[in-house]
Design a protein around this nucleic acid. Sequence first.
DNA 1: GTCTATACAACGATAGAC
DNA 2: GTCTATCGTTGTATAGAC
Lengths: 232, 232
Amino acid sequence: MNFATLPRGFHFDAFRRISPVNEDSLWDIIFARNAHHITVKRRAPALANLQKIFSATFCLANQRGFGAMNLRDLCRESGLSMGGLYGYLQSKDQLSAMIEDVIRYLCEQLPGWFDHVSDTTDQVEAILRAHIYLSEMLHPWFFFVYLEARTVPTAQRKQAIAAELAIESHLARLLGQESRLSNAQDRLLAAHAMALIQDWHLKRWKYRREKISIDAFADSVIALVRARLTGA
Amino acid sequence: MNFATLPRGFHFDAFRRISPVNEDSLWDIIFARNAHHITVKRRAPALANLQKIFSATFCLANQRGFGAMNLRDLCRESGLSMGGLYGYLQSKDQLSAMIEDVIRYLCEQLPGWFDHVSDTTDQVEAILRAHIYLSEMLHPWFFFVYLEARTVPTAQRKQAIAAELAIESHLARLLGQESRLSNAQDRLLAAHAMALIQDWHLKRWKYRREKISIDAFADSVIALVRARLTGA
DNA sequence: GTCTATACAACGATAGAC
DNA sequence: GTCTATCGTTGTATAGAC
């Protein structure tokens, strides 16, 4: 990892250049993490078909919701047949599980990327920026996880909730080192920061429309958190 | 309306006491706004059945998503029969339309409740508080609208988007009168404020778990916005 | 490794009895 | 005003050909 080369207050292009995970490398991660149940073993066709399957899933699920999406339409949209599809998953539920799994895995890794940053407030800023920029690169993935979390089976949902709380606690602990606020206020500030960064993938239609760049958005979130830390 | 009696920085109980719209009065509004297509004309059974139908809808839709919810389960959960249900709606889509309609109607009314507040920043605070407190009283309704907005028919979705942008523009205009920020920064601050208040109904499970009261949450959101307005 | 064909349960919606 | 019974359609999943 070369996150150490990122300057203080890095922007989207700088992060994208050095990030080991992006829109292209993701398919390898998915293939590796689901090797045990994907019956197609040849790498090249598997990666191509995974891409078709997930692109079609995001398109349909974001229109109707995952539960209302049906596998016939998924086949038409992805170009695979019903039989072909079942070489990559054993049930419809497993499709959403694969998506949740890879995003949760990445979110667990993310805070550790910035352990080297010595100034605590800068470390918070780096984690928030990385979150926003990663959810920009993997927008459909984050969007899906966020909006379908409630519809997935209980065990899967509990893991997602635990992951969110872990990041938030991590942020609250870092904020507590620098702020003059109470513990409860630090936790609330961490929760607010999470809500703001999630707003980027939830309302991207709005920010596109108003021509607000991802860098302007990230700067604004950071300014808001810093104002609360240092201000009245 | 007696919103003028609310003190500066009012909390949840004070708002609930004087609000003309709450968990009970809502059924009247629904019945009135949908009188043209509800074939059941007697008031008493209609209000009772509407309550059963919508409670069951929220329960099922929040578990599986509205599109994946089916009308047979809705009948079982609400206690009505298939035929009985169709006395209150002409199609499944109309069920979500009725929910979106009443929440949009209330959100359009809300900013006007505080036209009498002379200090602009106090007016912003009152609007944000009222939004948070209303979404607490009508939690399942707001939760549904927020999470199902993308799955509803296009015309209906466009109305919802327009309503959200209207509130945000209103807030941005008010913020612009008081802040030393640029226009673009005012718009972003308004967007952030909307994201924060929506977080209350989206993540209520989290705030319950951490025993964060609605008043503590609202105070924290207000503190964050005020810090950005007056701070660095 | 991917296809076509098919099993059979469940879907939204309606007609007609009460 | 609400019920039961039923229509035609569409759902997930699999078997067996290529």
